[in-house]
């Protein structure tokens, strides 16, 4: 396979990428096709963990850590709480999909086909240089607190507003 033999492609990196990618795609398919809500949530954990692993492969350590803490630590807990509080059936459910679910197949296949085609057309054969060292947190924080300061502050407000909004919405009265 020519893919594997390119000069500066790190074989081990590639192998682990494909393994993780396969697990992720499988997990993602289970998330959207499974009949059990709780299982779907747990498969989502697998996918999100896989994304974190891919970040590590891409030398994005800080983002990977954030991914683990925010998604797997916080968001997933929220999801599980949401599932429990809305009293989803524990176990299989017959009608997790809506009646017109089949329309999603052509739409997503079309979408995937278009995207893959465009990507291969544009970036096919482009090789990513394996960075000697991971992206340093210092570099990220420099961007965050210089050019990215205003969006950073705006984002803080978004989070605050979301927290308040969530409380207001979920409050019982």
């Amino acid at each position: 396979m020519s893919l594997m033999l390119a000069a500066d492609v790190n074989v081990a990196q590639n192998v682990s990428f494909y393994i993780i990618a396969a697990i992720m795609v499988f997990g993602a398919l289970r998330v959207v096709s499974g009949r059990n809500v709780v299982h779907a949530a747990l498969w989502l954990v697998v996918v999100l963990g896989g994304v974190a692993a891919q970040y590590l492969l891409a030398a994005a350590e800080f983002v990977a850590i954030s991914q683990v803490m925010v998604y797997i630590g916080a968001v997933m807990v929220l999801f599980l709480f949401g599932i429990m509080l809305t009293r989803a059936t524990i176990g299989d459910e017959a009608d997790l999909n809506n009646k017109n679910w089949s329309i999603g197949i052509p739409v997503s296949l079309l979408l995937a086909g278009t995207l893959v085609w465009v990507i291969v057309d544009q970036y096919g054969g482009e090789v990513l240089a394996s960075p000697e060292e991971p992206m340093s947190t210092t570099a990220i924080s420099d961007v965050f607190l210089r050019e990215g300061l205003v969006p950073f502050l705006a984002l803080s407000f978004v989070l605050l507003a979301a927290a308040i909004g969530a409380i207001v919405l979920a409050r019982k009265d």
């Binding site: 017109n100 329309i103 999603g104 739409v107 079309l110 979408l111 278009t114 465009v118």
Partner: peptide, 18 residues
């Protein structure tokens, strides 16, 4: 129906992209 809206949105976006 939100799902239908979603299907229309993504379908239209894909067609537009193509």
């Amino acid at each position: 129906k939100v799902n239908q809206y979603g299907a229309l949105l993504f379908g239209a976006a894909t067609v537009g992209a193509i």
